[in-house]
Design a protein around this nucleic acid. Structure first.
Lengths: 226, 226
DNA sequence: TGAACTTGTGTAATTACTTAA
DNA sequence: ATTAAGTAATTACACAAGTTC
């Protein structure tokens, strides 16, 4: 397709003389001199409003709009192409910030839920202990006190921390503790909740700061965003 | 998608003679004259490798690199500017896919954790029930059986579902259930876990499909990505 | 089969604005 | 305060791949 049409620019007075392409020739004149490139505000406005109704133009409208604005159909087409590209990257930014917000939201709920679960486990331990004690007729006051402050922020690697809550000088108690059935399953599942990934810290509490530390590679592995 | 295939055409002999090609005089130079635009593969390679070591050039290196490649310093500077811009948007895509992966990961762990917690609550109910029954000397076989299948996928609006698990024709049992202390707190906190947002479904199970349904507005509210 | 056209992607260069020495 | 650097947004093209007739 010949773009023969001679670019009769309405908007860019570039006299052929002194194209001067020298990098800094353009340094002149700021606001004044409604310069060369850049469509007029009115042209932009028309294009934008058209884009809003439909992001792609049928050849019909393209030609019509072009003549209305005193532009080449080619220019209108290119403007729409570029606009679509810009819009797409804007959209990505929007989606990113939304996703980040949802992530943070979910992360805090995750933490809260984890804490609740740990309290439940402690209550259960306490309860089982009481039961066992009372069943044996010994005094049940050695049961652990939980104060709803289970220190969930520290990750427990091997259920050692859970046991440490039962800080006690009576080693026989630990032995009895392990005799209580189902308790081990519970503690196990508690650790399984953290899928043993290689992360340095608790992934659940990640924020945008620490999220992309080691992922600054050169390219990603799957081309989402087809 | 993106077969970056790198347009392998080493064209553009860019003679230092001022690259006229001023935007609008460039009318012709059609297909022929493998146009000036586009740097040679070798030039690109040098620029890329330089960019890899440092994304911005000191004036020194800029001038030196320019003369090495037969380009104007201005062209090198512009290349780096454009490169940074491109790299930034690529980076955004990478970060997005990483964040999405982390989100999905967290979401599934959240679901698993929620299920575990619900099982804990049920076990606790069961246990308390047993205790109460045995304390009263009645038979403890009415205790609810939990099978680790708490149907966590359905969201429980008002703890009604939890109670429904205790399906039982003995209404007095429910009354007694409520008498057990701390249980209500537990159920309450269970509902609090879902922050009562206006989402149509459980936010925890969101995926990329449903994530951005109502957020296709025109602009975002805070310009992250300064 | 292919000529004409379109779209997505990448690239070069320009303009206007912002910022730091 | 000026000036030179950078950034963001534009304008324009080229090519590849896909579509239509």
């Amino acid at each position: 397709m010949f773009d023969n049409a001679e670019f009769s620019y309405s908007c860019c007075p570039i006299s052929s003389e002194l194209v001067d392409d020298s990098p800094f020739s353009c340094r002149k004149l700021n606001k004044k001199n409604k310069n060369k490139r850049r469509f007029s505000d009115e042209q932009i406005k028309s294009l934008e409003s058209m884009f809003e109704s439909e992001t792609r133009l049928e050849p019909r409208k393209k030609i019509q709009l072009a003549s209305e604005l005193g532009l080449q159909p080619r220019q209108v087409a290119i403007w729409f192409q570029n606009k679509r590209a810009r819009w797409k990257s804007k959209q990505l930014e929007r989606d990113y910030s939304i996703l980040l917000g949802n992530y943070d939201n979910l992360a805090s709920r995750y933490e809260a839920l984890k804490k609740e679960k740990q309290n439940l486990v402690l209550q259960k331990l306490n309860n089982d202990m009481k039961q066992k004690s009372s069943r044996e007729g010994t005094d049940g006051e050695k049961a652990v006190k939980y104060e709803s402050e289970a220190k969930t922020s520290v990750s427990m690697e091997k259920s050692e921390h859970v046991l440490s809550v039962l800080s006690d000088d009576d080693s026989s108690m630990k032995a009895e503790y392990f005799a209580i059935e189902e308790e081990q399953d519970q503690l196990l599942s508690m650790n399984m909740t953290e899928p043993a990934d290689s992360s340095p810290e608790d992934w659940g509490s990640l924020n945008s700061e620490t999220l992309f530390n080691e992922s600054s590679g050169e390219y990603q592995w799957w081309d989402f965003w087809s």
